[in-house]
Design a protein around this nucleic acid. Structure first.
Lengths: 145, 145
DNA sequence: GTGGCTGCAAACATTTTGCATAACT
DNA sequence: AGTTATGCAAAATGTTTGCAGCCAC
């Protein structure tokens, strides 16, 4: 994970300005650890910085995404996109339909798919989006089945 | 794949009426083999049935989805959802960024993930959405890299 | 000082909904 | 005949954009 104070540097390095909205959005993403909609991010940003507009949140997220600092995903049947900081290791999302919990699952699966496609099919993978919907162990235990 | 004349039966069996929009949407999905947006479906439906409204296309798709006859997916970065008939075997989508082609990849990967999650984590998978973006073999050959 | 970035409001694209009418069963 | 589904138009939702002014450099 990219460290806190790096954001200013990361932006400047690539010729982008370090602004209030960008810093605030970055902060929220770091604190939350992921899976927020743009609207949720805006809400939290407003705790510190009430003046920041939703459009700027979207623009910050788009920039972070372009710089590979954040990642957008469409979890399950959800209406809005959700955002998280770019994770160095490949992972996928486990969405529990019962409790709504979204888990990060880190493992070899994603890497295996990538390898399989390259070797077996000559397909050069750029990005893998894997979202699994179902019922988590806790909820199965709770409802007894 | 579900057979053509079945749609009337499938609907009636479950207490739904067999209507012009539903038949037309079903027909388009069958003929296309998948990956159409609601708008594209509406366009093609209009070839045969100009009177069918876009809202009815959406309502038909929602019904088919509920009956597990069709599946919605958000491919890659795309704006609109795309639809295809429910496929009996588990597959995932390979989207080429270069030529835009969307390939169905049938294999054991999806089943393996399901098994892995059940055994290793007690997670009962309901649905797996796997979308891989990258460059296909043809495009690599064409551009020489 | 200058150009990139912001806030605001308005536009956009996709999908959903209320309601009177049409049409399946 | 009864009631489900439709067409139409309008609303809702999520996201993007044009533009005048502001602020990081």
């Amino acid at each position: 994970m990219v460290d806190e104070q790096d954001i200013a540097e990361l932006l400047r390095e690539r010729g982008h300005r370090v602004t209030r909205p960008r810093r605030a959005v970055w902060d929220v993403l770091r604190r939350a650890g992921g899976h927020l909609t743009a609207e949720e991010i805006a809400e939290r940003v407003h705790g510190d910085q009430p003046g920041v507009n939703l459009a700027s949140v979207y623009r910050s997220l788009a920039l972070f995404s372009e710089l590979s600092l954040a990642r957008e995903s469409r979890l399950g049947d959800a209406e809005a996109s959700r955002w998280e900081l770019a994770h160095p290791d490949e992972h996928f999302h486990l969405v529990c339909q019962r409790c709504g919990d979204v888990d990060h699952h880190v493992g070899t699966v994603v890497a295996e798919v990538r390898e399989h496609l390259r070797r077996g099919h000559g397909f050069l993978t750029d990005d893998i989006e894997l979202t699994v919907t179902g019922t988590c162990a806790d909820c199965i235990a709770a409802t007894g089945a």
